[in-house]
Design a binder for these strands. Structure first.
Length: 947
RNA sequence: GGAUGGUUAGCUCAGUUGGGAGAGCACCGCCCUUACAAGGCGGGGGUCACUGGUUCGAGCCCAGUACCAUCCA
């Protein structure tokens, strides 16, 4: 083996070999275990959050695969409608082309071209991360099979009256000119104004205090052109005489009623609210209650119309309202219109005042522009009936969230769930399988052919398909079963559905998880007809943030590509990566300044295994993770440690007798101890993984490998290798090889590459060789064989530590062998020391060990205690009196403090009378120990003092 | 305004039925001892945010306060 660990030399070739050999395929043996990957955007690239989730999924899959399950990690990508369409439009714009001049078909071709060009990025990244997904089953939400499933679901939901079309107020993105769902809207607080407008009363009416107008306050004065009423609270005495009166709406000449509604907040502003049902969600609801006209004054790109469009609450045209709008504003963009309208009102002395006001403004999370509540025809899923079943599945534990608190988040959303707007005015996506005849009548079916047959439409009836496509989440909601072949009744579906665990971020619980549960439970039933859940467990991860705790985002320029952690990257390349394609120079400068401060030397290579181990170690449940380069470095060192420990094992075992061919095996105390210690580690490690405590699993692995196996066991094998007889050497070699071989299997799910690389050599010596470690049995917990060895060895370690402690604190050279005197040793201690002299000599670097009887006088010495036993290192010429006194003083102080605490507790009447007997006994024992320890130390202190 | 999570060593974080405060990194001292200097050995360091309560006993349970974060309105 190379002297230094070089992940870049081993990782990629191993992955290629695994993939070629088909190790990622389900074995078709054993119980099934299946994880569905959250499909990433096909034209995107993986960030640290993906690397994190993929690490956890791959760890689980590799663990279960080795543990005998028939595992499938289903892989695939998502077409990401808006995001992808935007990217391609931007690319085309750079060439001076827009999609409309290109036409729908040509444009979609361009998107497929782009997918072909960029779609490999993600799959390549996944291979570098070691993801053991079944590539042969890779799916894409727009491929034929999944498109068929989407169509089938749409048609069946429509037939079940769970999909409908209607003219509703939607969140409209005026830049992308499409509806978006309320989840895609980000409400941001901003400093705006509140305009107080005077609305003249009609027919000479006056307010209680004699005014001829009402004052309404609004954050969006431009929408006044679409006002349909002014509302007051029914109990508001100021306006009770005006119920049923009218307003002369300024600028438009429209006559609108004053209505009465509980919704109005009497305290806010004047207590009068303008109602604009076509441009505000709350007003829309009021409009429905009062049968107000919906007066739309905006075009689809948010410019003022020259004539309003008026509908009733059912979306049918209404003709009793004048549609005329002032010419002066026609064609003005909404924010320009706001200025112009405020100016016009002011000119007519209708502007009472302007107040500063903080309000929430909705922004499209893709386009970044202000979202407009807008009246359009859209398709909706009626979710209430689906939500009920989906809620129950979590309530009754068929689906469990880890950590559990996310269940509340799920419930609260499900309780107030709104119908889901699923149509998008885009070209990239699944086209809605609905056709219209010339009268606008709608027919839903799997094809135009089917529609014609079903409705007996003559060939000369013209039909045209709906232009819109479905929300991307509509297709990903079907992911768990569409990828397994649904609507066909496939073997894969029977084997792997319901799947086992879903690993995903909390940010898409609503977008994706909840919708998957609803759709799956509606369409898939078990043999008894009971709805099937898509997965039994949802493991929710936090976000990976940068070292300052900021969210990683392109615009902040703090995104980390996991491959840069693996391969390393120079500062120049990193700067280039982070600042190219940025619109603003100023931003680029900021980013490059911060990047230079954070990574002055760029990033060095750490390898995939170290990255994965770090991500696992940071995965404490349910909270965000602040990325920490130091942790990554630490775990790369850990890999290096494992590498070098393996080198040591191989150097001492290859081409030597490891007992494979028989021969007497004598196991040393250390051999027996490490066997049990490993056994305990297997138990803990499995239990951690079973509970999704990847952080604990990593800590357990680290502690055993470094602090026990390397620091103690390997050192303990050295005296055997140099001084042991044949049977002893055979026994130790056998143990070395077998513990390492099993340790590699234990660690494989977290560290797939380094373990495979080393295992290929070690397994030969252990007689368990195979083509890959990937499908070898996972270590099982064994019954305990060497109970006494555990106690003996842990005790011996204390002795060694005690001597090292003196050596360290007394500044004695590690090279100088020390003579040791033992006093107050009982029979057990004597046995332990005499049986293991060579271990003691080697690890504590001793010259000799001799026992003192109680009668012997103890020479001047530095002292350590192990239980009651005293370890003395004679001071003659070695040890400084004052230093030893100081050392003892510190120990005495510590013992006194301990003693005081114990005594205080036991002198407390309440404690003695109320605490459980075993606790009291434990405290008494501790008190006795402390007393004896203190006495021994004081005695020693006095002795030294006399010198 | 409502909900949830957080506040533990210089930094990043563990702490699982309430019973002697832990890890990694950083820091200090000694050491290139044939697996590893990406290392070895030893060491220092914490009023567990604050206030009160329950309890013989609270980092942990309860109430409240402050600050931070996220989600919802």
């Amino acid at each position: 083996m190379d002297k230094t660990y070089s992940p870049q030399n081993i990782e990629q070739p191993l992955y290629e070999r695994w993939e070629k050999a088909g190790y990622f395929r389900p074995s078709n043996q054993g119980d099934s275990y299946c994880i569905m990957i959250p499909p990433p955007n096909v034209t995107g690239s993986l960030h640290m959050g993906h690397a994190f989730q993929h690490t956890l999924m791959d760890t689980l899959i590799r663990y279960k695969r080795m543990d005998g399950f028939n595992t499938l990690w289903q892989v695939g990508t998502d077409h990401a409608g808006i995001a992808t369409q935007m990217v391609v439009e931007r690319k085309l714009a750079a060439q001076g082309v827009n999609r409309h001049s290109l036409g729908r078909e040509k444009f979609i071709e361009k998107i497929w071209d782009w997918k072909a060009e960029s779609g490999g990025t993600i799959t390549q990244q996944m291979r570098r991360l070691g993801d053991s997904v079944d590539w042969e089953r890779e799916r894409f939400t727009m491929d034929d099979g999944l498109s068929k499933a989407v169509q089938e679901v749409f048609v069946r939901l429509y037939e079940d009256n769970l999909i409908y079309r209607g003219k509703r107020l939607v969140n409209w993105d005026p830049k992308l000119k499409t509806a978006i769902s309320d989840l895609e809207v980000e409400n941001k607080e901003s400093q705006g104004s509140l305009w107080h407008l005077r609305y003249p009363l009609a027919d000479g009416a006056t307010t209680a205090d004699g005014k001829r107008y009402l004052i309404v306050a609004t954050t969006r004065p431009e929408t006044m052109l679409g006002d349909a009423a002014v509302a007051v609270h029914p109990d508001d005495a100021r306006y009770s005489s005006l119920h049923g009166a009218y307003i002369e709406l300024p600028l438009t000449g429209r006559r609108i009623p004053i209505i009465v509604d509980d919704y109005v907040d009497q305290e806010f502003g004047s207590g009068c609210v303008k109602i604009t049902p076509a441009h505000d969600f709350n007003d829309y609801d009021i409009g429905k209650r009062h049968d107000l006209p919906l007066i739309n004054i905006l075009s689809d790109d948010a410019h003022i119309l020259s004539a309003a469009e008026v509908f009733d609450v059912k979306g049918l045209p209404r003709t009793d309202v004048a549609t005329a709008l002032p010419e002066a504003f026609a064609g003005l963009e909404r924010f320009a219109a706001r200025k112009a309208i405020v100016a016009a009102l002011e000119a007519e002395d209708l502007l009472d005042k302007i107040e500063a006001h903080t309000n929430k403004v909705p922004y499209g999370d893709r386009s970044g522009v202000v979202i407009e509540p807008f009246l359009t025809d859209q398709w909706y899923v009626r979710v209430a009936p689906l939500a009920e079943t989906a809620t129950q599945a979590v309530e009754n534990g068929d689906i469990q969230f880890v950590p559990k608190q996310y269940e509340n988040m799920y419930f609260s959303w499900m309780r107030d769930i709104q119908d889901w707007c699923i149509s998008r005015q885009l070209w990239w996506g699944h086209r809605i399988p609905a056709w219209y005849d010339d009268s606008g009548k709608v027919y839903v079916g799997r094809s135009e052919q089917e529609v014609r047959e079903k409705h007996s439409l003559a060939a000369d009836v013209a039909l045209h398909q709906d232009n819109d496509v479905l929300d991307t989440w509509f297709s990903s909601a079907l992911w768990t079963f569409s990828t397994l072949g649904w609507p066909d009744d496939t073997e894969a579906l029977k084997t792997f559905h319901p799947t086992d665990v879903l690993v995903t971020g909390f940010d898409i619980i609503f977008f994706w998880v909840a919708r998957m549960i609803m759709m799956t439970m509606h369409f898939l039933k078990d043999e008894q007809g009971k709805p099937q859940v898509p997965f039994k467990t949802v493991y929710v991860t936090g976000l990976i943030r940068d070292e300052q705790g900021n969210k990683m985002s392109k615009s902040k320029g703090n995104v980390i590509d996991p491959l840069d952690m693996i391969d390393g990257i120079s500062l120049d390349t990193l700067l280039e990566k982070r600042t190219s394609n940025l619109m603003q120079d100023k931003l680029a400068q900021q980013i490059s300044k911060r990047t230079k401060a954070e990574f002055p030397e760029g990033i060095s290579a750490h390898g995939t295994d170290a990255l994965r181990f770090t991500l696992a170690a940071l995965a404490s449940t349910g909270r965000d993770i602040n990325w920490d380069m130091k942790r990554l470095e630490g775990y790369r060192n850990f890999c290096n440690k494992l590498w070098n420990a393996s080198r040591y094992v191989l150097m001492n075992t290859e081409d030597q007798d490891c007992g494979l061919a028989g021969g007497e095996l004598e196991l040393s105390l250390a051999d027996q101890w490490i066997i049990e210690r490993f056994n305990g580690t297997v138990k803990q490690f499995r239990s951690a993984l079973d509970q999704y405590r990847f952080d604990q699993a990593a800590a357990i692995a680290y502690e055993f490998t470094w602090n026990q196996f390397c620091d103690w066991y390997l050192e303990l094998t050295k005296p055997v290798m140099t001084q042991g007889n044949a049977a002893q050497q055979r026994g130790t070699r056998h143990t070395l090889v077998h513990i390492l071989e099993q340790l590699l299997r234990l660690l494989h799910p977290l560290l797939p590459f380094i373990t495979e690389e080393i295992w290929q050599r070690v397994s030969k010596l252990a007689g368990t060789h195979a083509d890959t470690i990937m499908n070898q049995p996972y270590p099982q917990v064994q019954s305990i064989r060497f109970a006494q060895a555990q106690d003996d060895m842990e005790w011996l370690k204390q002795v060694i530590v005690g001597i090292r402690n003196i050596r360290g604190e007394m500044d004695l050279s590690p090279n100088k062998p020390l003579p040791v005197l033992i006093a107050k040793a009982d029979e057990t201690a004597k046995r332990r020391l005499t049986d293991n002299g060579s271990f003691l000599a080697a690890l504590a670097k001793l010259e000799n060990v001799s026992f003192l009887s109680d009668a012997d006088e103890i020479p001047a010495s530095a002292t350590a205690l192990v239980g009651r036993m005293e370890i003395h290192i004679p001071m003659a010429g070695l040890i400084d009196k004052d230093a030893e006194l100081a050392r003892l003083g510190k120990a005495i102080e510590k013992a006194q403090k301990e003693l005081q605490r114990m005594a205080g507790k036991l002198n407390n009447e309440n404690f003695v009378s109320k605490a459980p007997a075993d606790v009291i006994e434990k405290e008494r024992e501790k008190l006795r120990d402390a007393e004896e320890t203190l006495a021994q130390l004081q005695e020693q202190h006095a002795r030294i003092l006399e010198l």
